[in-house]
Simulated scan of single mutants.
Amino acid sequence: MTTQTSRRKFIQAGIMTSIGSFAGVASAAGAPAIKDSSLQNPDNTFDVIVLGCGIAGLVAALQAKAEGASVALFEKMDRPAGNAICALGGFCAWGSRHQIAQGVKDNAKDFYDAMMDISAGRADPALTKTYTDNIPHDTDWLESEFKIPFGKTRTAAYPRLDRVCSIDGQGLTGGANAVFKLLDAAKARGVKFFWEHKAIELLTNDLGHVIGVRVQTPEGKKEFFARGGVCIATGGFSANPEMTDKYIGGWASRLALRGSPYTTGENISLCMPLFAKFVNMDQFHTGPI
């Protein structure tokens, strides 16, 4: 699969923070191709495996499919059930057609500076620049390609500029409406969905490269393989009291849960045996902001 990532990176990286997506990637890049004939079963081998049926996972699956990959998406619940379903569906952007139509003056430098400022300088500069550079056309792409309806741009809490792109829920929350429109698009484009398939272990070869995933299904444990890697888009850990206590403090584990009860930190627990580096673990996605 090619890596045309100049566009839509910000969603694939899970930076739609108001919607509540979080993604990591366990890549098989540079790993030897799967040669064992027992792993060539078309029912359990794909080019790309995506974990998590939220906005980040769905867009990653759609982009991989657009680039010609065979894609399988695994969701531990029997339906999309992450934080996006609960979210009103607003995220900050500059330069979208709605902002321009409202006569709002904005630019990339001011937007980038505000993102770094609000994170107290802790945001990753390269990732923040990717978001900044791609957010104008990516917002319009979501609307034109998948008919995700954006309403009037709203004023952000800080820095009090008209930057919040609000998704019209059309009877649902904005986040839920976006998820279901992306879900319909993914099904129409041939992404293969596996519901009630909970990832419990990343599979690696002798060199430590990720080549697939072991999942718990209603019929028992099964293994699936990915020629190009596994994209982890399983949400954060706001619904896991043990993790919030460990990484943030006991006070956080006692907060009233605002969001999905199913965001339990698989993005972290799956990568832990691989000695992944975890950063900004003192933060998680919750309400009211």
Results as ranks from 00 to 15, higher is better:
Ser96Cys: 05
Ile49Arg: 02
Val191Ala: 01
Leu203Asn: 03
Ile11Phe: 15
Trp94Asn: 02
Asp133Pro: 00
Trp141Lys: 05
Cys231Trp: 15
Arg214Pro: 11
Gly57Asn: 02
Phe146Lys: 01
Phe10Met: 05
Arg258Asn: 15
Met116Arg: 13
Ile49Pro: 01
Glu143Asp: 07
Ala252Tyr: 02
Arg214Trp: 02
Ala256Val: 15
Ala156Met: 06
His285Asp: 06
Met281Arg: 05
Gly68Tyr: 02
Gly82Arg: 01
Thr130His: 08
Ala61Asn: 09
Leu182Cys: 05
Ala108Glu: 07
Ser166Ala: 13
Asn240Cys: 04
Asn280Met: 06
Gln216Ile: 14
Pro42Arg: 08
Thr173Val: 01
Pro32Cys: 10
Ile248Met: 13
Trp195Ile: 15
Gly82Asn: 01
Thr217Arg: 07
Gln283Trp: 00
Ile15Pro: 03
Gln170Asp: 07
Thr244Gly: 03
Arg214Gln: 09
Thr3Ile: 03
Phe193Pro: 12
Glu242Phe: 10
Ser70Ala: 03
Thr139Pro: 09
Met77Arg: 03
Tyr112His: 11
Glu75Ile: 09
Gly287Thr: 06
Thr234Lys: 00
Val210Thr: 04
Gly89Pro: 10
Phe284Thr: 11
Leu127Gln: 12
Lys35Met: 15
Ala101Tyr: 04
Ala233Phe: 07
Ala28Phe: 14
Ala56Tyr: 03
Ala31His: 06
Lys35Pro: 03
Ala29Phe: 13
Ser260His: 03
His137Thr: 13
Thr204Pro: 10
Leu257His: 05
Gly169Leu: 02
Pro218His: 04
Gly14Ala: 01
Trp251Val: 05
Thr45Trp: 11
Gly90Val: 08
Ala93Gln: 03
Arg214Lys: 11
Gly103Trp: 10
Ala120Asp: 08
Met115Asp: 15
Ala186Cys: 06
Thr139Glu: 09
Val48Lys: 14
Phe278Asp: 02
Met243Pro: 00
Gln63Trp: 12
Asp133Tyr: 09
Gly235His: 00
Ala157Leu: 12
Glu219Ala: 12
Phe46Met: 12
Gln40Ile: 01
Phe74Asp: 08
Glu67Phe: 07
Asp36Pro: 05
Ser253Tyr: 01
